[in-house]
Nucleic acid binder design. Structure first.
Lengths: 389, 389
DNA sequence: AGTATTTCGTCATGGCCGTTTACAAATTAG
DNA sequence: CTAATTTGTAAACGGCCATGACGAAATACT
């Protein structure tokens, strides 16, 4: 009860910039007096700071502006990509305060080496954080693969070649509790928290194709994780049941038509180590017919799979993240056509097709989502982080 | 806060039969003293009754058994089916106390006539309820079609031939607030509340094929309604993108392969007014090759569509309700085969395929779900129903 | 300039609600 | 018949928010 009110104060201050006590009170529906005591507790605990008398311009005594501290607990995010590692520190205000990246080839890699390298980055990052007076409150790692729910084990990451790799105990221990999550999930959370400024908790499907095709479903502001944590496997939704064989053994999975490798092949490119989606974007821009055709087909396939998702979930929008963003100009038309045509039943009273937008965050989604997820839990449970007295 | 604790007391008593104050206290984590005052309030308000000293057998003073009243507020449920109308009254204990059914042909019907007939049934039912001392606390109507979220308008019910029919004001007004919902949604809620005895809030996909194919998605004990209320349109999930044309205008929707009309045609039956799924069951039992083949194909198509849903949602199970239950023996094998084959990616750590079960409730799901939904809201907000002092 | 007005933050008071502690009542165990 | 155990209630306590009053600090008006 008290905890929840402390949390609500923190959240509103983190979300809506500097505010006076009175402004916070009117926003969360408590009295000024109640907010005063809550703020006092948070100030003494070192989670909030006062910013001198705030400028007002309006009549009446100006309030003192409050803001979450930039020196207390912080979130540490990490991303294990196919060809890079990245780590960052985010303070309670949501600002990224430090960041390190390393280009490495992690495809079919040895987990031990990758994790050692990541541990090195994290240690340097922790030193930087320490220098700024930031105390890591947790570490979240984004991984391109399936992660068991409420666990730290990477069940399967096809592009890394990992199976059953447990990250617990293999990364620095002084960063707080470790969580591991799918990169698509964390990308969607970043979109939800940072990208979406919508006042009401929204519902969307966030597609994030890198090598495989991941998706994340957000329902009323909550990430849908699935019973085992495996929700969002859009890549293996059937789009042509008797079509191409997929690496998973089934036929006609979306990934066999719109996965990076499939698209590159269809465009006449050899999916070698250096060849990535970027190359495809270049070809599309120059009008390469094979590339355009390949991307169009991928768009259709994505549209078919998303039509299924939209019929099932009735989201308010579909967001394209990850590598798809760059291809959007060519991907969107066929995608929207299939989507519109196949979701017409429930057309009355809703826009047709469902709006498809491109993520505003870009390739940093998973990393920012990871750090944010730690910051959010800190904002959710302020009690744990109040410095004694 | 107080409201929530009152609600918790009521809920545990409704769910776990007669219990003493002490038993309730230990279950919801409050002290006996606190529960005592809560129970007092509910007793005075007429929502609970004492059942004399309970038999115990164990050492110590026996507690007095408590139970929700069987004479106070109650839920009224109604179902508008394609060829029947049904209404029932459910008390706070979850017992159906009265029930009326009328066989009528509602296909391509005049909404006014159907609603008048339903109103008549409801009036007779209300009289019965009144005779038992039951006070209707709301009316929920199950409809085979799309219903806008938080509204009483049937946006589209293909089998009734209704479009944009608003039920508000066209049914008895003295039964409390009116809610209208899709029959598949209410069937799923019935399965969730009555059928499922699982202790943890579960997640499942509930398929309910009558004429169209509806589905409802339950995530962690919550029905997923969708932004516009149109979630669960499994019938128009694409299963053969270039296949048969569907009534919705698109190609290859599930409904074009596993909808009642499609299956009857494939089995060589003419889908006339009297011919229904029952006829198909008979033929399957007698080994009719065409019928068996038709049902097998429907099963495959369902499996493909459900594979998409399972990949996306990672539910703990899939439940077949409605008309599908009777065909389960022939439907399940091909369905499970497709489902298993197409959801193998995330196989580690979860049963493959996802268990597919048949609803335990049977054809009454939507009706019971409707009445239950009213009872649930009464249990959720006891404050509104406390008789003054 | 000086007063009125408005808004901010704090303090004292009171009420709601659940916990703690104690105790009488009702049963079984020995 | 006593001891042990469990139930339900009563009284005191404590946490927490609301209410109402007040001083502080700005603007608006004369």
């Amino acid at each position: 009860m008290r905890q929840r009110n402390l949390s609500r104060v923190l959240h509103t201050l983190a979300a809506e910039g500097p505010l006076s006590r009175a402004a916070v009170a009117s926003r969360i529906g408590l009295t000024r007096a109640a907010v005063s005591t809550l703020v006092d507790e948070l100030l003494r605990g070192g989670l909030l700071v006062e910013q001198g008398p705030g400028r007002s311009g309006a009549v009446g005594r100006p309030g003192t502006a409050l803001l979450p501290t930039d020196r207390g607990p912080c979130g540490v995010g990490a991303e294990i990509g196919v060809d890079h590692l990245a780590v960052c520190v985010m303070d309670l205000r949501g600002t990224v305060r430090a960041r390190l990246t390393a280009r490495t080839r992690n495809r079919d890699s040895d987990p031990g080496q990758v994790l050692d390298r990541l541990a090195g980055l994290l240690e340097r990052l922790a030193a930087e954080a320490d220098g700024m007076g930031l105390l890591p409150a947790g570490l979240a790692v984004a991984v391109p693969g399936l992660v068991a729910r409420d666990a730290t084990t990477v069940v399967r990451a096809p592009n890394l070649g990992w199976r059953g790799v447990d990250l617990a105990g293999r990364l620095p221990q002084d960063l707080g509790p470790l969580t591991v999550d799918n990169e698509a999930s964390l990308g969607a959370l970043a979109e939800l928290w940072a990208g979406g400024l919508s006042p009401v908790p929204d519902s969307f499907v966030h597609v994030s194709a890198e090598i495989g095709i991941g998706a994340a479903v957000v329902v009323e502001g909550q990430l849908l994780r699935g019973v085992h944590g495996f929700a969002g496997e859009l890549g293996h939704v059937p789009v042509r049941p008797d079509g191409r064989r997929c690496t998973c053994g089934a036929r006609g999975c979306l990934e066999a038509y719109a996965g990076e490798e499939a698209v590159l092949r269809a465009a006449g490119l050899d999916p070698g180590p250096g060849v990535r989606v970027d190359a495809l974007t270049v070809r599309c821009e120059s009008g390469d017919r094979a590339a355009l055709q390949a991307v169009r087909q991928a768009g259709s396939a994505l549209g078919i799979a998303l039509a299924g998702a939209v019929n099932l979930l009735d989201p308010s929008r579909v967001v394209l993240g990850g590598a798809l963003a760059g291809l959007a100009p060519w991907l969107l038309p066929p995608l929207s056509r299939e989507l519109a045509r196949r979701t017409a039943v429930a057309a009355e009273g809703r826009p047709t097709p469902v709006p498809v937008t491109v993520s505003r965050i870009g390739p940093d989604g998973p990393l920012l989502g990871a750090a944010s997820s730690v910051v959010r839990t800190a904002l959710d449970t302020p009690g744990t982080f109040l410095n004694g007295r």
